[in-house]
Design a protein around this nucleic acid. Structure first.
Length: 763
RNA sequence: GGUCGCAUAACUCAGUUGGUAGAGUAUCGCGUUCACAUCGCGGAAGUCGCAGGUUCGAGUCCUGCUGCGACCACCA
């Protein structure tokens, strides 16, 4: 007999183990269904975002397994270059080891050590949630085969002219001492000061006043720019301005980029330290003068002694004081402006001129835009298409080199005179070098590694064995659907589409289901500093994994944030308890569970009615899953079991418990459990076992249900309505009104068998 | 500044080609009758952000406005 209380912790583990062998694809030649799991960071532990992401994927794969598909849910882990190196560096520091004192090789081996020790945490947590991923096919973006794929891809892109090396202005993180991509920047609104500084005009007593928030870069100025139509400054164009203290002469030029409204209308142009100035510099062929180094210090012969060699903020402070003293500072204006920060280091990003590797994203974006335009790849919800286009149509070269140790080392070798050899191996590079008369010993391997997202972009095919031509690629590529959050639409989704089209000549997935961020119950972003983080593991501990899954599915309304509070999960747990108790009732009635609906002659009206409702329910859930409306599905589940099955059918059973009704009850409930299994696998499998329905629903195919006669469904629906009306009127009039009497009379005159269950009104 | 969303009961949200506004929670009343108080039955609760327009008819379509949010751009 089932326990009186529903206590999920007692059986979840056991149920999971019971089905674990079915998670991998079979060798059958059924239609394939495949999903790539977005690989969590190796440093990650399960948060609610993962839980939502995994729940949705698990519902899909479990549903398709039941529906006779050969299912692959490809799991894996991302090496998360910068994030992981930071975590391990911090741990080493805590242990008294200065990471900077280690050689590159030593640091890398320390990171591997760490990975092997604590890198698999999240997998266990995903298992606790019930994820039925194909675990033994799991991949890591730094494992040997994946490294091969990355080298192959990099070399191919280089030879196709889609990767190039160039000296360009990049976002430089002065704390991590590496370049990062545009996407890894978070702009923050800050209060700042706009300093108005006057530069003397050569051969005159006049001055030109510029406005800047970064005076310390003035020594890197190459020009002062004004708008060509700006009447105030027209006469200055062509003249020469003199940078204070260093007395370097720079031209005053006209450029349409300048905004007459902003600042003084005169813009200091510092091409080596500002992206827009860089563009102006290119247009006017200006000198690029670097005055800030990779540590964020002012360091240059161009910088006067008194502010040289200082951290930029310090230099700025001293310089402003001096400018004030000397009467060169004309005005200080408080402003609010946005300042770029590195998303990992949380430190101000310095635009720096450095040699880096770039992917020509613009060229690769073309096809990637087209497949979405043509509907080959569909976004759910569709609106994300616009965001995707917006970004893809304005895409810039992607800086993929990182000056850190942990990651895929770029397969490039430099000759003594800057020759570049991009090859798969050192031998191949040496062979190419030899053709130019360069000895192998003279080659120097590039130490930069690739942006983590470069390897992630290969995920759809590298996980399946590319560059080999494997069975799994054949069977599972393109994958069926990608389930992910909008926060990595550009980082990951767009780049996978670009890479896949280039290497596979085929789209990587047909559908992209984009879910929202999980926020707290008030709609606030969960963050440690706010202290509103809800740990999914605690929720599972308290209410069970099924309750959490059901809640997440319930709240996953397309295009809306998922606002999750503990209360929701409790409500779901209570709902699951309802299913539990229904099972207990059926068990106490000794309802048989060994017969399927197809084996039963269903004659009674009540019974045909419940079968019709089940059929409708079965169809609806299939439709909901097809349309990725997990929110509808959970609402339908609640409606069927609560309003239809428990509140009416079970109550009616208390007045009609002949053998046919019992058999129907057992068969309907069994099929209900099967349908709901993908959503709440633990409790449904446990009930299936306990009631003797089957060992597990994991591969249980849908029962074929015949359509019911509409007349019967309609009659019982009307009967149900009458019951509700009677209860309501009884309550309102305390059973005294004539309306109540006439409703009762209608019930008494109801012809046929339904009259027998009239006692249900007392409920 | 550009783009895209969102606004429905006290709260969280549904409302799928326009046709009498729905659910859960909270609240109020009744209830422990052989599944279930982690519950049941019943009730109350909404000028569908505001203003126009199209239509026989608008929560739904169009325009404008207000408020909120996200993303992109921007360290004059």
């Amino acid at each position: 007999m089932l326990d009186k209380t529903y206590s999920p912790k007692q059986f979840e583990q056991e149920i999971y183990q019971n089905t674990i062998d079915e998670f991998s694809p079979s060798n059958s030649c059924n239609k394939s269904f495949s999903i790539l799991m977005p690989p969590p960071n190796v440093t990650g532990s399960l948060h609610l975002g993962h839980a939502l992401n995994c729940t949705i994927q698990d519902i899909l794969v479990r549903y398709h397994r039941q529906n006779n598909a050969n299912v692959l849910w490809q799991p894996g882990m991302d090496h998360a270059g910068i994030a992981t190196q930071m975590v391990v560096t911090r741990e080493l520091e805590a242990a008294g080891i200065d990471a900077k004192s280690l050689t590159r090789e030593e640091l890398i081996s320390k990171i591997w050590e760490w990975k092997n020790k604590s890198g698999n945490l999240i997998f266990d947590q995903q298992k606790a949630l019930g994820c039925s991923a194909s675990w033994e096919l799991s991949r890591f973006t730094m494992d040997e085969n994946f490294q091969k794929a990355v080298v192959e891809a990099f070399v191919a892109l280089y030879k196709d002219g889609l990767i190039f090396r160039a000296k360009r202005l990049v976002n430089w993180d002065t704390k991590l001492k590496t370049a990062i991509s545009d996407l890894e920047i978070q702009n923050k609104e800050e209060k700042g000061i706009l300093w108005h500084i006057k530069y003397k005009i050569a051969d005159s007593e006049e001055f030109v006043t510029i406005a800047t928030t970064r005076p310390e870069t003035m020594f890197g100025d190459s020009a002062i720019a004004v708008h060509p139509d700006d009447g105030r400054y027209k006469k200055l164009v062509g003249k020469i301005a003199i940078i204070p203290y260093v007395n370097r002469e720079i031209p005053i030029i006209a450029d349409g980029y300048v905004d007459m409204e902003k600042g003084t209308g005169c813009l200091k142009v510092t091409p080596a330290h500002h992206f827009n100035d860089f563009a102006i510099g290119k247009r006017h062929n200006l000198e690029m003068i670097t005055v800030v180094d990779q540590n964020g210090h002012t360091t240059s012969d161009y910088v006067p002694e008194f502010v040289n060699g200082l951290y930029v903020k310090k230099a700025r402070k001293l310089l402003v004081e001096k400018l004030k003293e000397d009467g060169i500072l004309v005005k200080e204006e408080e402003i609010v402006h946005s300042v770029p920060y590195g998303d990992r280091s949380d430190t101000v990003i310095e635009p720096l001129l450095t040699d880096q590797w770039f992917v020509d994203a613009k060229a690769m974006a073309k096809d990637a835009i087209k497949v979405v335009e043509d509907g080959e790849i569909k976004f759910y919800p569709e609106k994300w298409k616009n965001t995707y286009f917006e970004w893809m149509r304005n895409i810039e070269p992607w800086c993929v080199s990182r000056q850190i140790a942990w990651g895929h080392q770029i397969p490039a070798w430099f000759g003594p005179n800057g020759e570049i050899f991009v090859e798969r191996t050192e031998e191949e590079a040496a062979a190419e070098a030899a053709k130019l008369g360069i000895a192998k010993e003279k080659l120097r391997r590039e130490t930069d590694v690739l942006d983590t997202w470069f390897s992630s972009a290969l995920w759809p095919f590298a996980t399946l064995g590319w560059p080999g031509k494997t069975d799994r690629l054949q069977k599972f590529y393109p994958t069926s659907v990608l389930v992910t959050g909008f926060d990595i639409l550009f980082f990951w989704v767009a780049r996978m589409i670009m890479a896949s089209l280039h290497f596979m000549k085929k789209i990587p997935f047909k559908d992209v289901y984009i879910h929202a961020l999980v926020r707290d119950e008030h709609g606030q972003k969960m963050s440690k500093s706010k202290g509103n983080v809800i740990n999914p593991l605690e929720l599972m501990e308290e209410y069970g994994a099924d309750a959490l899954r059901f809640t997440l599915a319930f709240l996953s309304v397309p295009g809306r944030d998922v606002k999750l509070g503990k209360e929701h999960v409790k409500i779901s747990r209570n709902f699951i308890t309802k299913i539990w108790n229904a099972a207990r009732f059926l068990q106490s009635k000794e309802v048989p569970f060994d017969k399927k609906l197809t084996d039963i002659q269903v004659k009674g009206k009540l019974n045909r009615w419940i079968v019709a409702k089940l059929k409708k329910f079965q169809d609806e859930i299939s439709q909901n899953i097809k349309e990725y409306r997990f929110d509808y599905a959970t609402r339908n589940i609640q409606f069927f079991i609560r309003d239809i099955f428990c509140d009416f059918f079970i109550e009616a059973m208390k007045f009609q418990d002949d053998q046919e009704t019992k058999s129907v009850a057992g068969a309907v409930f069994a099929e209900f459990l099967r349908i709901v299994n993908p959503f709440i696998p633990f409790v449904t499998d446990y009930l299936a076992k306990s009631l003797g329905i089957c060992d597990t629903f994991i591969l249980a195919a849908p029962v074929n249900i015949e359509d019911a006669e509409p007349s019967i469904e309609k009659e019982v629906d009307e009967f149900v309505e009458l019951i509700h009306a009677i209860r309501s009127e009884k309550q309102a009039s305390e059973g005294q009104s004539s309306e109540y009497a006439s409703l009762l009379e209608r019930l008494n005159n109801w012809s046929g068998e339904l009259k027998n269950i009239a006692g249900i009104i007392r409920q």
